[in-house]
């Protein structure tokens, strides 16, 4: 138990015995999570990505085993 962290975690310790949450609560959390995250997923994709994909295609028209020596930028 981390007794010395803020008042918030005192509240948080209520369930530290890890009593399983009811199905209802799990569903509640799950649906909120998907709603919040879903907003991020649904955002329009910026132009730069279609540009990027075009670039990938033209750079390596049919390079099968892309030889590592010729990669555009050295990255670590």
């Amino acid at each position: 138990m981390n007794a010395k962290s803020g008042p918030e975690s005192t509240r948080g310790q209520k369930n530290t015995k890890s009593v399983p949450l009811s199905k209802e609560i799990q569903n509640h959390i799950g649906s909120r999570l998907r709603a919040v995250y879903g907003q991020l997923v649904q955002e329009p994709i910026p132009e730069r990505f279609s540009e990027l994909l075009k670039q990938l295609n033209t750079e390596t028209p049919n390079a099968p085993e892309a030889d590592p020596s010729s990669s555009e930028e050295p990255r670590t």
Partner: peptide
């Protein structure tokens, strides 16, 4: 994942106290 759910339930106040007995 379990701890995340428990903590969220707590923060959101949906892990009702009555279900888990008296508070510590």
């Amino acid at each position: 994942v379990n701890r995340a759910r428990t903590r969220l339930a707590d923060l959101l106040g949906v892990g009702s106290v009555s279900e888990f007995g008296p508070e510590p």
